[in-house]
């Protein structure tokens, strides 16, 4: 695993992120330092590295910032996700509601909390969780299930949150976990999954 260095000073967005991506895509990067000269590039490169499974540190340097990403000895989120890709089957769980069943809403929400916290029992075959319609409320600030979803994401489970639904419930800014996505992404992931479990 190599240590790399990238000077992106003078480059406008999105070029620092694209150059960082190109370097990482080549593989074999244990540590990477990217020099940038504007706050937007600093934020975006840091965010990209974080998503790629690096631990990120930022230091101010003469006229700019040094964004450093390190891969830990512990499996990164991306590496954990990779082991899930290699599992015997890929299970996608589609959640289109914020409660389970009908009859009593309080009970329904408790059951949903129990359902999400028990999902990890699927082991590494649990590949992706998709939140749709009222299900996106589970990923927003104030949700009692946030901890469980964050834990799944940390373990490499992909959490996809419907952007249209977040927008509908005016929760775009309140989303705390997962990747905001669109219907094309959701349908593609359903197609790629070996099994889809739907809870609506």
């Amino acid at each position: 695993m190599a240590e790399k260095y990238l000077d992106c000073r003078g480059l406008a967005c999105p070029n620092p992120v694209l150059k960082t991506k190109e370097l990482i895509d080549q593989g074999d990067v244990a540590k990477l330092t990217v020099l940038v000269d504007n706050p937007a590039a600093k934020e975006n490169v840091g965010r990209f590295l974080n998503r790629a499974g690096f631990e990120v540190q930022v230091a101010e340097e003469a006229g700019g910032f040094a964004v450093t990403g390190r891969r830990g000895v512990i499996l990164s989120g991306a590496e954990k996700a990779e082991t899930r890709e290699q599992a015997a089957q890929k299970i996608l769980v589609l959640i289109g509601t914020d409660r389970v069943g009908t009859g009593d809403d309080v009970l329904g929400r408790r059951l949903m909390a129990s359902f999400v916290s028990t999902l990890k029992e699927m082991g590494r075959e649990l590949w992706c969780v998709v939140l749709l319609n009222a299900g996106v409320k589970l990923a927003a600030a104030g949700s009692e299930i946030l901890g469980g979803l964050k834990e799944l994401e940390k373990e490499g489970v992909m959490i996809l949150v419907c952007g249209t639904c977040l927008n509908h419930f005016q929760l775009l800014e309140q989303k705390q976990v997962g990747e905001t996505t669109n219907m094309l992404d959701i349908v593609t992931h359903m197609q790629l999954a070996d099994k889809v479990i739907s809870l609506t």
Binding site: P14, N44, G163
Partner: peptide, 12 residues
């Protein structure tokens, strides 16, 4: 847009 919304979906 490529500074502030790089990680947003197009729809978002």
């Amino acid at each position: 847009l490529l500074c502030e919304a790089l990680f947003d979906t197009l729809e978002e």
